[in-house]
Amino acid sequence: MGSTDNSAIMTIDLKWNRFRIHKSTLNKMGNPQYVQFLVNPEEMFIAVLGSNRPLTGGTSNRVKLVQTSRHYSVEFYSNTLLCALVNMIGTLDFQYSYRMSGEVDVANRVAYFSMKTLKKNERRPPSDG
């Protein structure tokens, strides 16, 4: 067994129509300048394909890192993609975000996530200060 960690994490925030890919996942994908989301409804998978140039055959999204609290990640907003995922998965609570785990195919710069791994994130109460 090798010591290479190819685990990947992505968060879907239904309240804000937001997909957040964690920096560690992007690092394993070779820090792409662009990503494209690919959905396989039959197998319940979503893939994130990385590239250093815009991809053809769909919408490419430019990668721009943002700092969220203590972590760096990249965020994408897509109501269309979110609605398609909700239609495939079924009932989800739009007041929560959900985390998906997956793995990175380093050679092909693709992160694969099974929608069966969705886990609800409990929101922290807002701080008063």
Score class of each variant (00 low, 15 high):
Lys116Ser: 12
Glu103Ala: 13
Val106Pro: 05
Pro54Arg: 14
Met115Gln: 05
Asn61Phe: 07
Phe76Tyr: 09
Glu75Phe: 02
Leu55Ala: 01
His71Gln: 09
Thr59Ile: 12
Gly102Lys: 02
Tyr96Arg: 08
Ala84Trp: 02
Lys116Ala: 12
Leu92Gly: 02
Thr91Gln: 13
Glu122Gln: 09
Phe94Cys: 08
Lys64Arg: 11
Lys119Val: 07
Tyr72Ile: 06
Lys120Gln: 14
Met115Leu: 14
Val74Ser: 11
Ala84Thr: 11
Val104Lys: 03
Lys120Arg: 15
Val110Asp: 08
Ser97Asp: 10
Phe94Asp: 13
Asn87Leu: 02
Met88Glu: 09
Gly57Asp: 01
Gly102Asn: 03
Asn87Trp: 00
His71Thr: 11
Ala107Ile: 15
Arg70Gly: 14
Ile89Gly: 00
Asn108Leu: 10
Thr68Tyr: 03
Phe94Gln: 13
Ala107Tyr: 07
Leu85Pro: 10
Glu122Cys: 02
Lys116Trp: 07
Arg99Asp: 03
Leu82Asn: 10
Gln95Arg: 15
Ser101Tyr: 14
Ser69Cys: 00
Asp105Thr: 05
Arg99Cys: 01
Leu65Asn: 01
Pro54His: 10
His71Leu: 11
Val106Cys: 10
Leu65Met: 09
Arg70Lys: 15
Glu75Lys: 09
Thr68Cys: 05
Asn61Lys: 03
Phe94Tyr: 08
Arg70Leu: 11
Glu122Trp: 01
Ser69Asp: 08
Ala111Asp: 00
Leu65Gly: 00
Tyr98Ser: 06
Gly90Thr: 01
Leu55Gln: 14
Asn61Pro: 00
Glu122His: 05
Leu118Thr: 02
Ala84His: 06
Asn87Val: 00
Glu75Ile: 12
Tyr98Asn: 07
Asn87His: 06
Val104Ser: 04
Cys83Glu: 15
Pro54Lys: 15
Asn79Asp: 10
